[in-house]
């Protein structure tokens, strides 16, 4: 049984079919890409999986159990974390606090312990702080620990968002256009970072990305969407050869 299994997924927005008959599987340790022209429905897929939208058809199963209809915070607690296309950090909070909030669901003690500053509370606070610092060290963000997240440059903000998502201890991490707005050097750094996440954290990675070079060089499998329809599934080499994909991106060779 795959870790994440999506079948026959479909959604309409006011009569407009945004996604139809979408199938997908993802296992731990895999790195899979989701590409397609603008408006193809890529982020819509992520929004359905994370519970932001309710699908009109189909099912999303996490380790065999349907997660359709659950609230976004429940789905995250079951092990699906994400980043956002337009970075959504807690801008006014420090870099450290952003990651600490990611750890919030791992807190085992209750509010009474928190108010009385019990021993269990202090041990857990210390533990989470150390784990957060370690995580931030992995993402090279320690020099800005106490700065508000919104004061970071774009690249570090993207890194912090991924670190925060990993703090929720996900089984599956959805990255929505992590390379958007990055310069070539930052993109190379990001590729190394994604490779490192795959090695170090046992997660299944699912990536939406417009940068073809990045997607083709790191993904094992790729799904291509166009107008909500899945037009191709396969290895990067197969996708590059696929005439339907070329048509979707470059247009039809004959005049219509």
């Amino acid at each position: 049984m795959p870790l994440l299994e999506i079948s026959h997924l479909g959604i309409d927005f006011g009569g407009l079919r945004a996604l139809s008959d979408f199938h997908f599987t993802l296992d731990q340790g895999e790195l899979v890409g989701l590409i397609g022209p603008n408006g193809a429905g890529k982020t819509t897929v992520f929004n359905i999986v994370t519970g932001v939208y309710q699908p009109d058809a189909g099912d999303v199963r996490l380790a065999g159990k349907s997660i359709v209809g659950l609230k976004p915070f429940r789905i995250n607690r079951l092990g699906v974390a994400r980043t956002f296309q337009n970075v959504r950090l807690f801008g006014g909070l420090s870099v450290l606090d952003n990651v600490l909030i990611g750890f919030n669901q791992s807190v085992a003690h209750g509010f009474v312990g928190t108010l009385l500053r019990s021993h269990a509370h202090q041990i857990e606070e210390h533990l989470h702080e150390q784990q957060a610092i370690e995580l931030l060290g992995t993402f090279d963000l320690l020099d800005r620990l106490h700065d508000p997240a919104r004061t970071l440059a774009y690249g570090p903000q993207r890194r912090l968002e991924i670190a925060r998502a990993l703090a929720t201890r996900p089984k599956i991490l959805l990255l929505d256009e992590p390379a958007a707005g990055m310069n070539p050097q930052e993109k190379i750094d990001l590729m190394n970072l994604i490779a490192m996440i795959r090695r170090k954290f046992s997660v299944g990675l699912w990536l939406i990305e417009h940068d073809m070079k990045l997607v083709m060089s790191i993904c094992q499998r790729i799904t291509v969407l166009d107008h909500g329809e899945t037009i191709a599934v396969g290895s990067p080499a197969e996708i590059q050869e696929n005439p339907k994909v070329i048509e979707a991106y470059l247009g039809s060779p004959e005049p219509a």
Partner: peptide, 13 residues
């Protein structure tokens, strides 16, 4: 306060 959608995506009720 900072971002409700992001908070929910981080498992915050």
């Amino acid at each position: 306060r900072e971002d409700e959608i992001a908070a929910a995506a981080m498992g915050v009720d």
